[in-house]
Write a protein that binds this DNA or RNA. Structure first.
Lengths: 211, 211
DNA sequence: TGACATTGGGAAGTTCCACTATCCAACATT
DNA sequence: AATGTTGGATAGTGGAACTTCCCAATGTCA
């Protein structure tokens, strides 16, 4: 398969495929001459993964490269690879050094143990900080409920990781970490909408929902 | 308070405040002369909210404007306002028209009822689509578990909405919808890290977690 | 009162990002 | 031999989020 067919099958312009090759998101094809290279099914799969990470996954090209590097070089253990993936991912845009202590205290209360420099910890602290400066500190108990739900999810996510091949496990971890986030957020909003409909039946006749 | 003090107290450059004023994210101050305007505490609060939405909330300026419009004009009911906020928010970058039927079938199974054109529904369908084209359809049962967790969260989110003032309710809804998302994602990653540590104790001596 | 700094407002410039377009010489195909 | 495609490189584009610059009007201090 040459680049034009690869691009066509992936549904994106050739110029964009070249761009991804240049950026190192997709490995180069096998050169069969100075102006010819051959690509295989694995290139197509990689391309689709890249598009999923950049689009729905909302990763930047630079972040995607870092995440894919973790996929390509799955260190020595799944736990390590998960750490690498998390480190590559953009937490929340944290400006200064938010108050890590509060976040750490929560974790201790929930019995969660994570690395001292875990990026997710920083992200949590930053997000809590943002809520506070936005003038809406989370109501009492809300955080605990969120933690309970997140705990179940994380537990299941990890339980689902295929134990066999390390490479496969890493790919699974990365894809599930990144691409299930939009799913989770969409589900939460849908649940909110359903709950809101039940709590606020709303007097408006019909079409109240229209724009 | 004049613009320079407003900017200083919010911790951002004056030019940026002017930019937000121009973009309509922050209402204009009260003019006290041709080259003088007065701002109050409510402007400061609004500015902080804007920064939280643009930063940790990851909203674009255009999206933030739409979301804030819902805050400023809280229609006639909380349910409606929540719909407006959801509509303004960026679901997942959905390209074509993904397969809504599958997503709808799931909702029916969970007993959730939402508007036919709910943006979250579109987002869910798009996210599932992305997972599939990325070559990693969610394992059996995973979606149900995610829905169960999301259901509890959405239920609680809605239960927490203050019933008194409509304006206050809308602000609460918007802030909680947008700013709790990073919190939820961070919590999930932390839970994953904790679960992964327990499942993969990992032979590496110490420092395996280092960069 | 006069010198100086600040303000609101607008236009233009900057930086970054994710592409996209154009070129070119080397090939392959007809 | 003519034509078209390719890999590779360089430059250009359009959008987003600021940032800089400028102005006349105005406040403020000496």
């Amino acid at each position: 398969m040459q680049i034009s067919e690869l691009a066509r099958r992936a549904g994106i312009p050739v110029a964009t495929v070249k761009y991804y090759l240049r950026e190192g998101l997709v490995p180069p094809g096998e050169l069969t001459g100075a102006t010819r290279a051959r690509y295989g099914e694995e290139h197509l799969a990689r391309l689709r993964l890249v598009r999923a990470l950049l689009g729905p996954g909302r990763l930047s090209v630079a972040t995607a490269r870092a995440v894919l590097a973790a996929v390509d070089d799955p260190g020595t253990s799944v736990h390590e690879a998960l750490g690498a993936a998390h480190r590559a991912l953009p937490g929340v845009g944290v400006d200064g050094a938010p108050d890590l202590d509060e976040a750490r205290a929560h974790l201790r209360r929930w019995g969660w143990r994570v690395a001292a420099d875990s990026p997710a910890l920083l992200a949590l602290a930053g997000a809590l900080d943002a809520l506070r400066t936005a003038g809406s500190p989370p109501p009492d108990g809300l955080l605990d409920r969120y933690a309970a739900a997140a705990g179940r999810l994380g537990e299941q996510d990890v339980a689902d990781i295929p134990a066999g091949s390390l490479v496969e496990a890493v790919r699974f971890v990365v894809v599930n970490t990144v691409l299930l986030e939009p799913v989770l957020l969409a589900l939460r909003r849908l649940a909110q909408e359903d709950a809101s409909r039940r709590r606020f039946p709303d007097g408006r006749p019909s079409g109240a929902e229209g724009r």
